[in-house]
């Protein structure tokens, strides 16, 4: 299905790199490296030059920590979105928020996508997306409260739960007026999931793709990779790319990443193996 992300549309087979840009002092991977606005802006320029189609700007880290209110979250995100919009008109701007109030302000400043990592915790977020003509990312979290870690969560069938919850969220978004071409689903690795759950949704990602909704995967350097390989943050790229390859083979469309270049190469290679993307330039044996 043709994908519409705010001002931008993408054809059926297009795979998209969504580069993470944290306006936070405490995110797990970059540990505040782009907390300063100019550092965050430099990161946007870098990932744009690396070919990312989307930037995902977030003002609150996912893990528990100091409470950040809506006003503070907007202060971190909204003016920055406006600056990126003005300087990079070709970039899709996504904002990582679960709050409708923040989503509305971000869309008014130029955001194209509301990336709700917390599974619709604020029921009005879909209205914010609909009003602005923005896209929405519908994630599965098992119903946990935002910024909590999973604790003894179990599922009869984690993939069935992920499909059921994300499709229900997607239908709620469409009923609220979001363009059906602008609804993306995400199994949300690590969110409301232990490592076994995240491995299973990776292994069975094709079932999510079969729903017909474009699938986003957010795998980058996460704990399920770290636990699987027993490696700390900073040594998870190889495991991330292996998981990326499996998701690419299954047909995921959007990849939320720290490392744009490595992920793009992995996804392109797998897409070509799958017969969905021609090689860039082939002459060997064909002269």
């Amino acid at each position: 299905m043709t994908l519409r992300l705010g001002r931008h549309t993408f054809p059926d087979e297009a795979t998209l790199m969504m580069a993470i840009v944290n306006r936070t002092p405490d995110s797990f991977y970059d540990k505040g490296a782009t907390w300063a606005e100019d550092k965050a802006f430099e990161r946007v320029a870098l990932v744009a030059a690396q070919g990312a189609e989307i930037v995902d700007i977030g003002g609150i880290k996912a893990a528990p920590g100091v409470e950040i209110g809506a006003a503070e979250e907007k202060a971190r995100v909204v003016d920055f979105v406006a600056r990126v919009r003005e300087s990079f008109p070709e970039l899709v701007i996504s904002v990582d928020t679960w709050r409708a109030e923040v989503g509305r302000a971000a869309c008014a400043a130029g955001a194209d996508v509301l990336n709700d990592a917390w599974g619709g915790a604020d029921p009005e977020l879909v209205d914010a997306a609909a009003e602005a003509g923005a896209a929405i990312v519908c994630t599965h979290t098992g119903g946990v409260t935002p910024r909590t870690r999973p604790y003894r969560l179990e599922y009869d069938d984690v993939v069935a739960a992920a499909i059921s919850d994300t499709v229900a969220y997607a239908e709620r978004a469409i009923a609220a007026g979001v363009d059906p071409a602008s609804v993306v689903i995400d199994p949300a690795h690590d969110f409301g999931k232990n490592t076994f759950h995240s491995l299973e949704v990776t292994r069975r990602l094709g079932e999510m793709v079969a729903t017909g909704y474009p699938v986003l995967v957010s795998l980058s350097n996460k704990d399920f990779v770290g636990e699987t390989l027993d490696v700390p943050v900073g040594q998870r790229l190889t495991g991330t790319l292996a998981a990326t390859a499996v998701c690419a083979l299954a047909g995921a469309r959007i990849y939320r990443v720290h490392e744009v270049v490595e992920t793009r190469q992995t996804v392109d290679m797998v897409s070509s193996i799958a017969g969905r993307r021609p090689p860039k330039r082939a002459i060997r044996g064909l002269q």
Binding site: P278, K280, R281, A282, L286
Partner: peptide, 17 residues
């Protein structure tokens, strides 16, 4: 008789444009 001229061997960039 260059096989790169065949549509089944087309890449994103054409090496024999």
């Amino acid at each position: 008789g260059v096989l790169a001229l065949l549509p089944e061997y087309a890449g994103l960039d054409d090496p024999v444009a």
